[in-house]
């Protein structure tokens, strides 16, 4: 992913348009959320410099459109929405990822890859647990790389759910999509992520089974 936007100048210009009261308010709202914003940005971009740019661009946009925030108790959702939209529009602009058609149909959810199904060996019973062993052998880097491999829409949904721990309803509100679509994107995103982990595990010699069909 390339540079998102040259954001610092934009941040400065956006901020200048605020009234004194708005400046104080935005400081009160934004500063405590910086950790959350950068963590989310890092889970999407992986690289620290890109994540910083994404957060800065988000704050710049927040300053520019601060007057539109009616309910300040929803500032976190509002900022996450701005950040998600910036990330997704950048993904689409660059077209680096070949996006999977987002039909969002439940039909697709019924035929998905499961790492557990691919690795587990039920006959081992109590004394063997290859699927948990596999997870214990994976580095955070491996999991982040698998997350990076997802198409943008799926990556955002999985990151909001699994990395940020938000509810489906909160995710639906942030992305402005129906609950069913949230559910579908999370399921499909996890399926793709698990398939990526399976390929990595196979390449590393952590699993010896043949590639499953799904």
């Amino acid at each position: 992913m390339g540079t998102i936007i040259p954001s610092w100048r934009q941040l400065d210009e956006g901020y200048m348009r605020l009234t004194q009261q708005q400046r104080e308010e935005i400081k009160r709202l934004v500063l405590p959320l910086l950790d959350d914003l950068e963590r989310f940005a890092l889970s999407l971009c992986h690289r620290e410099d890109l994540a910083e740019e994404l957060v800065a661009a988000t704050i710049a946009s927040a300053c520019e459109s601060f007057g539109r925030l009616r309910d300040t108790t929803k500032a976190k959702q509002w900022l996450f929405r701005i950040l998600s939209n910036k990330f997704l529009s950048d993904c689409r602009r660059q077209s680096r990822h070949k996006e999977i058609a987002l039909t969002d149909s439940l039909e697709d959810d019924n035929n998905q890859f499961s790492l557990f199904a691919a690795v587990s060996q039920p006959f081992l019973l109590w004394w063997g647990n290859p699927e948990r062993e596999l997870i214990s052998h994976l580095l955070d880097e491996d999991i982040q790389n698998a997350l990076d491999s997802l198409p943008g829409d799926f990556r955002v949904a999985v990151a909001l759910c699994d990395v940020e721990g938000l509810t489906y309803e909160q995710i639906a509100s942030i992305l402005k999509i129906p609950l069913g679509t949230v559910r579908s994107r999370i399921a499909r995103g996890r399926s793709l992520l698990q398939k990526k982990l399976w390929h990595h595990a196979r390449d590393m010699g952590l699993v010896k089974t043949k590639e499953p069909h799904q």
């Binding site: 963590r39 889970s43 957060v55 994976l138 955070d140 982040q144 999985v158 699994d162 990395v163 721990g165």
Partner: peptide, 11 residues
Amino acid sequence: RLRRLNVGGSS
């Protein structure tokens, strides 16, 4: 494991 990614606060 996903929940643990990038824990540590903003840079």
